[in-house]
Design a binder for these strands. Structure first.
Length: 329
DNA sequence: ATTTAGACCTGTCAGC
DNA sequence: TGCTGACAGGTCTAAA
């Protein structure tokens, strides 16, 4: 789910809130969520480490950790449904489901009750005193399920990694191995390195379609299904165009479009539908600014033609058949 | 060398 | 109401 903008937005929120905090302990509720090292070593190594910095590379969130002489990086990839939530002190962990219903426990995991951190205040999701703001949000995250791992901070807060579909991965590596931990990632689309010449060079000789090329993280790192469709719409390029046939003008527009849709996505707090939430449990509102993604049957904002949906590389692909023609130049 | 189907997972929604 | 199939932000592996 989360693509570059959603990860970047989360990184910024974490940077404002958890730098300087010390991890007291990590709990793992679904072993496969921890990709490296094995869950027991992971837990042992991460205890007592201090959070030094929070960064993003492609769709990876990177947390720099330090303890004594040793430095580590924690990498978090949310895949489809992974999410981070920061709870204020006062949270309660309920693992009683494990005995009550082992089958349900396997999918739903523990239940967290308690406090979700808000920008300016905390509010209780349990019964009790309610402020006006509580009234507006009273049912929000009353119960938090699908937690696959969590980090308990020494100041009493808790950073949860929730992930219903269990595709997300968290890894801990010695800092020296960062290059190896993040191997194979292509250009950062929002960096200086993403020039027209680089884009041209990386697409040259690629006979596959442009949509697939944009999803290939070894070429550009960070675009996913939403923003790839949006960038192609911006540049008026049909998703099935062979990547090596784009004209220089089309490449220029495509680069401009990629930067524009990613930047807007970040500004809008990410694209949310169904489960995606930010650190404080808020939905990003970029979905209301989307032009083609999941807009099949709706009129194109530029020409009124109905948006179509096709399947490319097993992924839904949305485009305007008038603005984005396959034939011609 | 590339494409493509299948895995990995669970929830939701449309249709019968 | 209940069952079935399609589909959802991603990426890896194996078969064609």
């Amino acid at each position: 789910m989360p693509e570059l903008p959603e990860v970047e937005y989360t990184a910024r929120q974490l940077r404002e809130t958890i730098i300087g905090a010390t991890i007291q302990d990590a709990l793992v509720f679904w072993d496969r969520t921890i990709g490296h090292p094995d869950p027991n070593d992971f837990r042992a190594e991460i205890a007592e480490l201090r959070i030094e910095e929070v960064r993003r590379r492609a769709k990876y969130l990177i947390v720099d950790l330090a303890g004594g002489e040793q430095k580590y990086i924690l990498t978090i990839h949310r895949r489809m449904t992974g999410n981070l939530l920061l709870l204020a002190p006062g949270w309660e962990l309920d693992t009683s489901l494990r005995e009550r219903d082992p089958v349900a426990w396997n999918t739903k995991g523990p239940i967290f009750h308690g406090y979700t951190i808000r920008r300016t205040h905390c509010y209780s999701t349990q019964q009790g005193e309610k402020t006006e703001q509580d009234e507006e949000k009273k049912d929000f995250h009353a119960e938090i399920g699908y937690c696959r791992a969590c980090f308990i901070l020494e100041d009493g807060r808790c950073l949860l990694f929730t992930d219903p579909r269990k595709f997300g991965r968290i890894e801990l590596w010695p800092q020296e191995q960062e290059l190896q931990a993040l191997a194979g990632l292509g250009l950062e689309p929002l960096s200086e390195a993403f020039t027209l010449e680089e884009l041209q060079a990386r697409l040259a000789g690629r006979r596959g379609n442009i949509k697939q090329a944009l999803l290939n993280q070894e070429i550009l790192a960070g675009l996913g299904n939403i923003y790839a469709d949006e960038a192609l719409y911006y540049a008026r390029i049909h998703p099935l165009r062979p990547a090596n046939t784009l004209t220089l003008e089309e490449l220029r527009l495509l680069r401009e479009g990629i930067i524009a849709v990613l930047t807007l996505g970040i500004e809008h707090g990410g694209t949310s539908f169904s489960e995606y939430r930010d650190l404080w449990g808020e939905a990003g509102d970029n979905f209301s600014h989307v032009q083609v993604y999941q807009q099949e049957g709706k009129p194109c904002q530029r020409c009124g033609t109905l948006i179509e949906r096709i399947v490319v590389a097993q992924r839904s692909t949305h485009f305007c058949p008038t603005c984005q023609q396959l034939i011609g130049e």
